[in-house]
Amino acid sequence: MALMTSVSSEDAGESGMDEITSATFIVRNGADLVAAAGYQVWPATTAHLCVLTAPGERGRGLARQVASAAVAQALRDGLLPQWRARSMASRNVARSLGFRELGSQLSICLDQDELRVEG
């Protein structure tokens, strides 16, 4: 939990680390957890990758290290690893592990105050 609270709520949500169903692969700096990865099993034997690195530790290859371990485990488990990345940093880590972009995703957040039902 310390790693999740060390990042912005946006980073924590984007990482998906609170939803993994696999083992967690980690890197520590002393007693501090500085990077973690795992995956959530999705339908059709898909392993949705989840990765998070502490802000002060980014750019050192730690995300690639923990994500590589999670991908290897997903493959051993007979799953197809999937990486959905919005940020360029996340996309770069995915590419470094051999992932290729095959499409894009659009997310729309609606303000509840603006929703109206007319009839």
Rank of each mutant, 00 (worst) to 15 (best):
E19T: 15
L52P: 04
G56P: 10
G13M: 08
T53H: 08
A69V: 02
Q82E: 08
L52I: 15
L75V: 02
R84S: 12
E14K: 10
T53E: 07
G30L: 02
Q40V: 13
A63D: 00
D77T: 00
D18H: 15
V41I: 08
F25N: 00
E14I: 13
T45I: 07
G13K: 06
N29F: 03
Q40I: 09
T21F: 09
S87R: 12
N92I: 11
A35G: 12
G59C: 06
V41L: 00
R84T: 13
I26D: 09
T24V: 14
P43H: 12
Q73D: 15
S15K: 14
M17V: 09
G61A: 06
A70G: 01
L62V: 04
W42H: 05
Y39Q: 05
G56S: 12
D32F: 06
E19W: 14
E14W: 08
E57W: 15
Q82R: 04
T45W: 10
E14P: 00
L52H: 04
V66L: 06
I26R: 02
P81G: 02
G16V: 07
I26H: 01
V51K: 07
Y39A: 06
A31H: 04
T53S: 10
A72I: 04
A69M: 06
A44Y: 09
A63F: 02
E14D: 11
S90L: 11
T24Q: 13
S68C: 00
W83M: 02
Q40T: 15
G78W: 01
D32A: 14
I26C: 06
G13F: 05
A36E: 14
E19I: 12
T45G: 05
P43I: 08
S68D: 11
A36I: 12
A85F: 04
A54F: 01
T45M: 11
E57D: 13
Q40N: 11
G38A: 11
D32N: 11
P81M: 04
T53Y: 08
E57T: 00
A31T: 14
R91A: 13
A67Y: 00
L62I: 01
Y39G: 07
V71P: 10
I20V: 15
A23F: 00
G56Y: 11
V93F: 05
A72K: 12
R84L: 11
L75C: 01
R86L: 07
L49G: 00
W42K: 10
A37Y: 05
N29T: 01
V71I: 08
L79G: 01
W83N: 01
T24L: 14
L33M: 15
Q73T: 08
G78D: 03
Q40F: 09
Q65M: 05
P81I: 03
G61Q: 05
A74W: 05
R64Q: 15
T21K: 13
A70F: 01
S90H: 11
P81D: 01
R28Q: 09
G61P: 05
R58D: 10
G13D: 08
I20C: 01
A44R: 05
T45D: 14
Q73L: 07
W83K: 00
A23Y: 03
A67S: 03
G59N: 05
A36P: 02
D32Y: 05
A35M: 06
M88D: 14
A85K: 01
A54Q: 00
T21Y: 07
L33F: 08
S87D: 07
A23K: 12
E19P: 04
V93I: 14
E14C: 06
A44E: 15
L80Q: 04
T24R: 15
G38I: 13
D77L: 07
L52D: 05
R91S: 08
R28P: 10
S68N: 02
V71D: 04
